[in-house]
Design a protein around this nucleic acid. Structure first.
Lengths: 372, 372
DNA sequence: TTGTATGCGTTATCAA
DNA sequence: TTGATAACGCATACAA
């Protein structure tokens, strides 16, 4: 069944049917009704392939799914993906998946995807200093939004060689520093004075940001953070080792804020007294532990953790994208609604000129459980 | 750039270029080479939309992603999805996502997806008794494979009204009964004699299957399972309550096999002595607990659990699909390889006529940790 | 406001 | 073995 079938049944030309679908206001009310009836009676739906060939747009957005990897933190991007799929459907888009082992491979994937599918946009996750992906896409005028800020590369900006000012692009992010600050502040409020931090090695944008939340909070409380932080690659075992090291100092911290639930899990193991699990039971030396990401593991074992508003973040990404793709028109063609980012995530639109791309910084929330 | 660009450069007709791409054997070696050179020199890639319009095939497969839902078990389908995306790419396909709140909504989604995108196939997960989705798809000759067996509905098959024999379709599944049996057998070997089972309420195909693995293993060991099992909806709290109930009997079990990691987590909580976590520390009454799915939570807290070979299962699904879609030809058009299901999952091809659709039952493995 | 003609890039049919 | 032509379903420019 094609647009011609509908046209015959409604006794109009194909063009009129097309107009009813794409520019309803150009068709007389009566005719429009007749065509609409024919459409529903026939159960007609426009063929995307044909439409795409004509318009060059596919109503498809691509997002990367990480290679199979087990682990505590893997669920974060998955949850974002769930939210994104739902948000996309609400806006009349579909999500296509691709994999890539590293940023270079990801750019290859863009190339191959774009060559074949006329994708409307990409959603990028996990941005870092001087992200090559955004540069590649921007250069080719491919619409995209990043879940993660465009972290400026300090090395590059200090270089006189080139200004290296990346063109601004729409992004959504969660304020990690604020999340860690919330956790730290709460520990201060609970009476803790020696609060340690267990994070990732310096150099990762997200990791450094989270660490800064702890650092500045202690400083503004008049406390000295010196010597109270340790760094380790993300992971249970690594976290345990680093936490042991941190607890071995002369005056060990009474609480440890961690950059991830994995590290926090390791830290819990480290503070665990022989013969007992310390959470809320008073069975060992009470060291409060907080994690980051509020993964299922944290929920399961009662770990206090910073929760990212992933579904709202995904919805924001789609909103930003539809702003670009549908030229600022509110809502999709078939009248679905837009989510208001300011509603559920404590969203803050920041910076940029009013006509520039949207930038949304979401505030995470602290989920308090038994571990601290 | 189109096929015409390539044709001009190679000094052939468009059709010859098309033949080089789709039926290389029909083109003389010399010409083929010339065309191939032009293709690489130009970096030409076929436009999927145009190809799709002509052939009616999109090289797109659809799979459902569940609505955002936090929880221990959520990761299972996510991990399958990761594997499927990778396997699809290896076969020259892409994965498109959709959501649906229930089977009815899922069928609506099929309808809308099919109307718009000419999808090549669907991958269904979480089959249950008398699955309406498979019937709907089969009726319309839409290719699909299920991750999960086509459980026969006992109520329906006993009805004289209709034979209700579903047309056989390709499927891949993991032998849950065998996984639970492995766990149970290991506990028997370790000396346990009173082994309880904590599962889901009777009626769910997967749940009943897992329970049967425990039941038959105890029976064939000459033990009486009576009174040693409890049922609860999946969840931490529910598992804890049911486990307490199970441990309150006169002669309580010394080990509990659980149908999921969520339930197992609850059970761990139930057997936890006040003041200590019992895993491997001898701090309380030692009751061995095993879970199912080997989720990140299990890995994190040292829970023995049955691990499903999800990546191999996903690869099998794609193999079965390419068998149908590419008409049994080995490998995709561009010469990627097929994974051999018999390699990494302990695959067993079962039943069915040799010419019938493929059916693959994978064997899970037991990951032994401190909890039992 | 409605209808006609044309082209998007590809593959299938058929003739050379 | 290769090439010319038509057709897939839709949207756009333009004519009516």
């Amino acid at each position: 069944m094609t647009i011609a079938t509908v046209a015959r049944r409604a006794r109009v030309s194909r063009q009129t049917v097309s107009n009813v679908l794409n520019a309803p206001h150009m068709v007389r009310e009566e005719t429009r009704e007749r065509v609409r009836e024919a459409i529903t009676a026939l159960g007609y739906r426009a063929n995307q392939a044909a439409r795409q060939m004509r318009t060059g747009r596919s109503r498809l957005i691509a997002v990367r799914i990480e290679p199979t990897r087990d682990g505590v933190n893997g669920s974060v991007l998955d949850r974002f993906l769930h939210g994104l799929t739902e948000a996309a459907e609400d806006s009349g888009y579909r999500v296509m998946l691709y994999t890539a082992a590293d940023p270079g491979a990801e750019i290859d994937a863009y190339d191959s995807l774009l060559g074949a599918y006329d994708l409307d946009a990409f959603v990028l996750t996990g941005t870092d200093h001087g992200d090559a992906r955004t540069a590649w896409l921007a250069e080719r005028d491919v619409p995209f939004v990043t879940f993660g800020r465009p972290w400026d590369n300090p090395a590059e900006t200090s270089s006189p060689h080139r200004a290296a000012v990346p063109a601004p692009h729409p992004w959504v992010d969660v304020d990690g520093a604020d999340g860690v600050a919330q956790a730290t502040r709460r520990l201060l409020d609970t009476g803790h004075r020696r609060i340690g931090f267990l994070g990732w090695p310096a150099g990762s944008a997200v990791g450094d940001d989270r660490r800064s939340g702890w650092f500045t909070t202690l400083r503004s409380a008049g406390l000295d953070p010196t010597g109270l932080d340790r760094a380790a690659p993300d992971g249970f075992t690594q976290g345990e080792a680093a936490a042991r090291d941190l607890l071995a100092v002369a005056e060990p911290p009474t609480a440890i804020v961690c950059a991830s639930d994995s590290l926090a899990l390791g830290a819990l193991q480290a503070v665990r007294a022989p013969g007992g699990w310390p959470i809320g039971t008073g069975g060992g030396p009470e060291v409060a532990i907080t994690g980051f990401d509020d993964t299922p593991v944290a929920q399961a074992i009662g770990l206090t953790s910073v929760s990212q508003p992933l579904a709202p973040a995904a919805a924001c990404c789609m909103d930003l994208l539809t702003d670009v793709l549908d030229g600022g028109r509110r809502g999709a063609a078939d009248g679905r609604h837009r989510t208001d980012p300011s509603l559920d995530g404590g969203a803050v639109r920041t910076g940029g000129s009013p006509t520039g791309p949207g930038q949304v910084l979401l505030r995470p929330s602290l989920v308090v459980r038994q571990s601290g």
